[in-house]
Design a protein around this nucleic acid. Structure first.
Lengths: 326, 326
DNA sequence: TTGTATGCGTTATCAT
DNA sequence: ATGATAACGCATACAA
């Protein structure tokens, strides 16, 4: 510790930096002066070894370049940074083994807590981990000590889409689902079905087709729907990316949106306001789920109980939907 | 070191783990066995303090959710992970001060090297930092000891776009540029101008309009171009996002793409194959710039000289361009 | 080839 | 209120 050039002991300096105990004002001032004369910066590495806290939070995402979760990462980063924590991002690639491995890496690096964005780990695994360090997880609804979960209101979101279409007079509404091992996909599909029943609209398994949340998958799904010759006047895609693909497939088939078919997406990606036609879609604040998750982590870290929270959905009506004319 | 339950000294274990020196095969085997009996994992935190290496590489990006740089992050992550390094991502938000601050954070955390994705720092600043630790930077062309730069061939990329349009008979080609303090923007514009001159096409400042690399900015830029009543049959946008916005503005103005106006973008974002019409665009492998940057960092770390590299561009011809019929 | 001793920069536990 | 000292978990220089 170069700062004992101030003529005091290392511990005194440490106390000043951390506010651990009272230090007389004169020494306080002296040390602070020496500190910025020398441009001294405490070494987080050593701090971790000694103090046990690394001031970093592990964040398990699936793909670091996911257009969907990207905003959540930003929310996490913003909130954490204010609290002088640094996020450590790792990717699980929707693969259980990889998720496990990366989580191990995070534990090795002694992160102070872990935020898990969805993923495929079992609730038990998460519960066990929570005994080691605080966990915040999205896309689930479970609670355990030291574990906090926060989720989108996917059910409501999908319901909103159906309601909008229903109000426009649509009755036969198809659904392009994501992969069912993906919690968001499963919930969105459930929300669609529930709302259909609530409104006495036809619930028909043939109206549901499964895909992969990608543009190309949406294209294939739409093609499949068209080929099946089933009757529908509107389609809901479980995310915007698939909606883009579906929209192109419709175009290739000579069908116009929204004149022939109404289309609604899910997520409201930045691009969606600029597609042709601009896409009607369900928006959930992905940024907010990130920032709330980070805030919850901060709460957990200071032994406060974070408030329960469900991120609201809203429907953004643009030009890809219109009154059903059949 | 619990592993001295194997009856050997801590140093021996350390040697085995790091391959620092020869160890007899029998002890080798014994220790390894004890290691995974105990499920022992070396603590990176302590390793850093003692060894001086943190096995982590700082990555300065601008926005963690940038649709453009996202793939680069993935490339970095993939390569680094194989070499047992972990990336530490921080965002500069296109703001010099923030970039500086975040870089400071990285240095504090004792990263072994830093990868800078573009940004606004001066070459000098970077050069100085390179005296402290290895730096890899994209979007510049500078060389200094311990500093490696890698870049897209933006000039060639823009040239490719012009050449494609020229071959289709277009002569009056407008250009929607990004902000000029952005290196990529500046180079792409220069490439456009150079190719125009090379082919004796009209170089007219009124054909160039400046924007912000966002969809909304592309919309405004296109509107501005249309309002100016200048004559052009094709437009190049300096990135795909602005092309999307421009495309919508064209539609609002009752102009068809490609029938009335040809449009080419830049970046080939995943969405671009699914827009209406699918977008002709210049592709550069962003993933590759990430992976190459990471590889270069690894080379620097092992005191090898990374090969000079310029990431090639190619034009992806889809349906937003066609023969000029004026 | 292997063991011993020392140090990395800080926090924490004692004393004082 | 402050200082001395141990400890964090490993790497490394040196000795054997």
């Amino acid at each position: 510790m170069v700062a004992q050039r101030a003529g005091v002991s290392p511990s005194t300096v440490s106390r000043i930096l951390n506010g651990t105990a009272k230090v007389s004002d004169d020494k306080q001032a002296l040390v602070r002066q020496v500190i910025d004369e020398l441009g001294f910066r405490p070494d987080p590495t050593a701090r971790s070894l000694a103090g046990g806290r690394t001031m970093s939070i592990g964040v398990l995402t699936q793909y670091i370049d996911s257009p969907f979760y990207g905003e959540a990462l930003r929310g996490i980063e913003d909130v954490l940074h204010q609290a002088h924590y640094a996020p450590l991002f790792v990717s699980g690639h929707w693969n259980q083994e990889e998720e496990r491995a990366r989580l191990g890496l995070l534990q090795d690096r002694k992160v102070d807590g872990i935020i898990v964005l969805t993923g495929q780990l079992s609730d038990e695994t998460l519960g066990e981990m929570a005994r080691q360090l605080p966990i915040v997880v999205t896309g689930r609804q479970l609670s355990a000590p030291n574990l906090y979960s926060i989720d989108f209101d996917n059910l409501e979101g999908a319901g909103l889409a159906v309601r909008h279409l229903h109000a426009l007079g649509h009755r036969n509404v198809a659904f392009i689902s994501g992969p069912l091992d993906h919690p968001d996909a499963e919930q969105r599909l459930a929300g669609y079905r529930a709302e259909l029943e609530r409104r006495d609209m036809p619930v028909n398994d043939a109206l549901v087709v499964y895909s992969d949340f990608q543009e190309s998958g949406g294209f294939r799904a739409m093609t499949q729907l068209l080929d099946s010759r089933i009757n529908f006047s509107a389609v809901i895609a479980a995310n915007d990316q698939m909606a883009y693909g579906a929209r192109l497939a419709l175009h290739r088939a000579g069908l116009r949106v929204p004149d022939d078919i109404s289309l609604v997406g899910f997520d409201d990606l930045p691009h969606s306001a600029f597609t042709l036609p601009p896409l009607t879609t369900v928006r959930q604040s992905v940024y907010e789920i990130g920032s709330s998750a980070a805030q919850a982590m901060l709460d957990l870290l200071s032994h406060k109980t974070p408030p329960a929270k469900l991120i609201a959905a809203e429907i953004i009506v643009r030009e890809s939907t219109r009154i059903c004319r059949r």
